[in-house]
């Protein structure tokens, strides 16, 4: 029996009407159904922010953690049970601000998980303050002088050698669902930065603003995502032309593969043998 959209129907979302999160939720459901992943094999770990509520609006194993801490929780889960499909979800403040250090090292170590970052360039849960990806000069209640230059998450991800770096757009559900499917099929750390219009607090990066600038990378033809120099160029491109699609691919050793204990059965299924401690006792004599 295959999985249908009904299997993933969760609680009624409490997001603003027309919020970019709706598009992301639809794309995620579509990808999960198309790959026939049953809800009990999926864990979504979220942070705090409007994005952090996403798993409640699906139906799957859910760990809604703290602001900035989705990644380490997700990493621990994957290590304990590698048979689980583990997706971490957060916003730009969550991922690139509060959790920035975790993000850098998750890419460096190459944990076999996916990180979906709902990037709306604003703190929406707390009603409109500047975020690490707000446009230069973004005026908000906490930044009356204007926000400094934004962080470039994709360029950082390429520099960190992340194994899969892509950018999606909440306004193009089919394209985004395709990227999510690619991320789900990638072994290693997959960063999926998703441009998400915030209809209540970000009046700069609106749907229209994006529609006028976005173009799709030709992932099936000319563009080679394994070329780091080209990837870096695309990752930095912003302004009049904004690329979406798979920006960078880097086949690297997966973190979990370095541990003998993680070969064969998942860690939680391995039987514990107390008598093994006898050797430790003998060594202390």
């Amino acid at each position: 029996m295959s999985i249908t959209l009904n299997d993933y129907t969760g609680l009624q979302p409490a997001w603003c009407p027309d919020c970019g999160n709706f598009g992301i939720l639809s794309a995620l459901k579509k990808a999960l159904v198309e790959l026939d992943i049953p809800p009990y094999k999926l864990v979504i770990v979220s942070g705090i922010g409007q994005a952090g509520k996403l798993p409640h609006y699906l139906k799957c194993n859910t760990f809604n953690s703290l602001h900035g801490r989705a990644l380490p929780v997700a990493e621990g889960i994957k290590i304990a049970n590698r048979d689980l499909c583990v997706i971490a979800v957060g916003g730009d403040g969550d991922a690139y601000g509060e959790g920035g250090n975790h993000w850098l090292h998750a890419m460096r170590r190459n944990h076999d998980i996916i990180y979906m970052v709902h990037n709306n360039g604003v703190y929406a849960l707390t009603r409109g303050q500047a975020s690490p990806t707000s446009e230069t000069g973004f005026i908000s209640g906490t930044t009356p002088q204007g926000s400094p230059d934004p962080l470039q998450p994709l360029a950082i991800a390429v520099a960190a050698g992340a194994s899969f770096v892509a950018r999606g757009f909440a306004g193009d559900i089919d394209h985004l669902a395709g990227l999510i499917k690619l991320a789900l099929q990638n072994r290693g750390f997959s960063l999926l930065d998703i441009l998400q219009p915030c209809v209540s607090f970000n009046h700069i990066n609106t749907y229209d603003w994006y529609y006028r600038r976005i173009y799709k990378l030709d992932n099936d033809g000319k563009y080679d995502p394994f070329n780091k120099t080209a990837a870096f160029e695309k990752a930095e491109q912003w302004g009049d032309h904004i690329p979406i699609g798979v920006i960078y691919l880097n086949k690297r050793k997966v973190f979990e593969d370095s541990f003998t204990a993680l070969q064969g059965q998942s860690l939680i299924k391995k039987k514990h043998d107390v008598s093994k401690a006898t050797r430790l006792i003998e060594n202390a004599l």
Partner: peptide, 13 residues
């Protein structure tokens, strides 16, 4: 901070 949260994740699983 990562250490304690990784342990929490592994324990949840």
């Amino acid at each position: 901070i990562a250490a304690v949260h990784m342990a929490i994740g592994a324990s949840y699983a």
